[in-house]
């Protein structure tokens, strides 16, 4: 593959994404947030993918993001809530002193210093160069130490046989799994399924983008409005930030 070919491909991919940004649904502006890398190009530290979740726009009772993730990644359960997987969930937060309530989606926070990666004995729990935290199920032995270590309960253990997994989201009994930030979509220059679903719902509460690119929408919003981490006291530097917490 020659260099010019690569750049041409990148240009085309960028063009497609830009075109996608022009095609807007009513009331929804889809910006070209991710650019597809060439297939042979590895994920790079030049990027750090993250999410900014505006809790003031997240509707109580809406679970479009959860449903979209389930469909996209095929983690439909067996009607057994305690053992069924849960890559993303809606959490209701209430301040008992004021009665103030909030609703927000909670998933893997894609920490820069992830406890799950530290404790994994085989290195199956890993952080990709662009900040996406994944489970390498090829070498996961199912010890569940990562689940003990995660402060967000973001990980699930696959308790039962999986039938007909999605080709882009392999999952199997006896291993641990969690939100992949839709890595298969990100690598193809698309946004995660939850982000898309939230936008389609008209809420547009989740913004996906490159935290290291100051021109990206997520960086600009963070610069303008700020953004907090859940359990910031733990110092994990999460890639998922929230607006309107507290």
């Amino acid at each position: 593959m020659s260099g010019t070919d690569t750049s041409r491909r990148r240009f085309l991919a960028g063009g497609a994404a830009a075109a996608a940004g022009l095609l807007v649904a009513p009331g929804v502006m889809l910006l070209p947030v991710a650019r597809a890398r060439a297939p042979e190009e590895p994920a790079s530290e030049a990027q750090r993918w993250g999410l900014l979740i505006d809790t003031t726009r997240c509707a109580d009772g809406c679970d479009a993001c959860v449903r979209a993730c389930k469909t996209e990644n095929g983690w439909e359960g067996h009607g057994r809530p305690a053992t069924d997987p849960q890559w993303i969930r809606k959490v209701k937060v209430r301040d008992p002193r004021t009665g103030h309530t909030q609703s927000l989606p909670l998933m893997c926070q894609h920490c820069r210093k992830p406890p799950c990666v530290d404790v994994c004995p085989t290195g199956a729990s890993m952080r990709r160069a662009d900040g996406i935290v994944l489970v390498d199920k090829h070498i996961c032995i199912g010890c569940r130490y990562c689940m003990m270590a995660c402060p967000y309960k973001a990980r699930s253990f696959v308790h039962e046989d999986v039938h007909d997994p999605k080709p882009h989201a392999p999952r199997g009994k006896g291993t641990v799994e969690s939100c992949t930030l839709c890595v298969h979509r990100v690598d193809a220059g698309r946004v995660p399924a939850c982000v898309e679903a939230c936008a389609a719902e008209g809420n547009g509460a989740i913004v996906f983008g490159d935290l290291k690119d100051p021109r990206s929408e997520i960086s600009q919003r963070l610069a303008r409005y700020g953004g907090e981490e859940i359990r910031a006291d733990l110092g994990l530097d999460t890639g998922v930030r929230y607006l309107g917490l507290s």
Binding site: V119, P121, C140, G142, C143
Partner: peptide, 24 residues
């Protein structure tokens, strides 16, 4: 373990930051 058949993986792949790996 979820995958006891992969004991060999635990013996061949190590993350030395993990206390479990030290314990092996």
């Amino acid at each position: 373990l979820g995958r006891p058949d992969r004991l060999i993986v635990a013996m061949t792949y190590y993350n030395f930051k993990s206390i479990f790996a030290w314990n092996i």
